[in-house]
């Protein structure tokens, strides 16, 4: 502890990428997030799981202000979240997000989808943006489809494009909101493979997912949420082998039971 305080060079490493403290959110009277405290270190990979309606999607959607919270603080990459539009957009530029239903823009080609933010938000010249987008499409192994429209691709391909599109902004954190839940079973692996590669490259990741295999191999920490609270937070081996809470055990029993 004392040691870190005396090493200013390490502050960059030591500052958490995302800090959430005493976060509360209501939908009307429904208390959807209750006193959430969460700190995500730079390069940390976190998997969030829990029954549906437990608030896990809402939690990660608060991190880039797709949902507004009522109480508590969120700091992303050193920038405290406020209701100021400029501030929110500044945070969003550092946060990539992948959605359950891909949300690609159907009227634009794969390449145009990827170049939209670099060109209009980061003001890069088109040629440079396209070159960089092609590199990311190469990495998610879909560069040969760059000039097709999303509607011509399979679900797995679309989700890989969505990942590439988010990466094109060079985000410091990636949020995944159930990225494989809308996919046919035979396409889940191709998306998980891309996510695993990304994790190995040191990207800070928060994934809401039910893919426990992914959690085991990649996660630094697995978080279990229920009824708007963080019930358990532990490294995967502890989480799966000796969960403390009975609710976690029950949940794991249900999804791993067969």
């Amino acid at each position: 502890m004392i040691d870190t305080q005396h090493r200013p060079a390490a502050t960059e490493e030591a500052t958490p990428m995302v800090t959430i403290s005493r976060l509360n959110k209501w939908y009307g009277d429904f208390h959807v997030l209750r006193d959430i405290d969460l700190s995500v270190a730079r390069g940390e990979r976190i998997v969030i799981c829990g029954p549906s309606g437990s608030g896990k999607s809402t939690l990660i959607r608060c991190i880039n202000h797709l949902e507004a919270h009522q109480q508590g603080e969120i700091v992303v990459s050193g920038i405290p979240m406020t209701n100021d539009v400029k501030r929110i957009e500044q945070i969003r530029r550092n946060v990539g997000m992948v959605f359950q239903h891909f949300n690609l823009f159907p009227h634009l080609t794969v390449l145009e989808n990827c170049c939209l933010s670099p060109i209009w938000v980061q003001k890069k010249p088109r040629r440079e943006a396209e070159k960089s987008a092609m590199e990311y499409l190469e990495r998610v192994r879909i560069a040969n489809q760059a000039h097709k429209y999303p509607g011509q691709l399979s679900g797995g391909q679309q989700q890989r494009v969505a990942i590439a599109r988010a990466l094109c902004m060079h985000p410091e954190v990636m949020l995944f909101d159930e990225p494989t839940s809308a996919l046919d079973p035979e396409m889940i692996k191709e998306v998980l493979d891309v996510m695993i590669e990304l994790a190995h490259e040191g990207m800070t990741m928060l994934c809401v997912t039910h893919e426990m295999g992914f959690a085991r191999t990649v996660a630094d920490r697995v978080i279990f949420m229920d009824e708007g609270q963080i019930v358990e937070s532990a490294p995967p081996e502890t989480f799966f082998n000796e969960p403390r809470s009975s609710r976690t055990r029950e949940f794991l029993g249900q999804i791993l039971g067969h």
């Binding site: 969003r92 939209l116 938000v121």
Partner: peptide, 16 residues
């Protein structure tokens, strides 16, 4: 238009 379209745009840092 699906709400997700606007959200995806917002997540990419595009303003209104």
């Amino acid at each position: 238009i699906d709400k997700g379209q606007g959200e995806a745009g917002a997540a990419l840092g595009l303003g209104y």
